[in-house]
Amino acid sequence: MTTDPRKAEIVLDSVIAEAAAGDPGLIDRLASCHPALERLKAPGLGRVLAGLITLKDAARMAGLDAKELLAHAKGERASMPKTVALPEPDQGPDWPTREPSLRLDVRPIIGQGGDPFHEIMEATKSIAVGQVLEITAPFDPVPLRRVLGNRGFASHARREASGSWRVLFRRESEQADEATAAHPGACAPAQAASSAPQGAALQLDVRGLTPPEPMLAVLRALDAPGPTQTVVVRLDREPVHLFPELAERGWRWRALPAEPGEFRLEITQGP
């Protein structure tokens, strides 16, 4: 019996899309573990999400035991991973107990298949230094927390008895960099770059998304701070509108061999 080498390499830091490339059933297995991970199967956005979070991120988003989720993902364990009480390494000394300046419940938006990123970013504009924004979400929005972290927010997440998540963001400093306002796509991909292992090409699969979402997903990933030097994007069509934007941002691109009906693009930083 032979083992697919890509499948054998799945670790907690594996980006889900890369792991799924060698194991087509992986997404289904992960999605079955927790409602928060069902978004991985959403048309279009699911692919983007999978390309930008690791198994460790997925475990945190769903509040599951990471090692058990990994074993389940690898098919080594049939039973569902157990829910864990997550540590709060980023908890501030006292501010999580303070009254929030603004509350935003994004569960209805996500429940309708929408993406609350714009509403969240609008809400952050009214938060002054020292003030707190409270977001109620159906899962721990790990990548969103990274995005806002890069914009000067400390965050603290707690799972409520109802199963939903209460996430507090306190502005620690003025917005550091507008470019970090990259969209996390379904509360996920903004930190695409940092989700990819150091030195490796970020894999972004935006097939199935309706224009202009593929272009936006790529630009958000490129605009996000991080070590990424190369991004490989899988698209449904040649992104002619994207090319001028890449040129303006100082990225170069070339077409790669691709499957029929697919356009694959390698984007690299440099002159």
Binding site: D115, H118, T210, P211, P212, E213, M215, L216, L219, H241, E245
Partner: peptide
């Protein structure tokens, strides 16, 4: 317009 403004449809 979404392409020009870089915005969702």
């Amino acid at each position: 317009i979404p392409m020009f403004a870089l915005a969702p449809a």
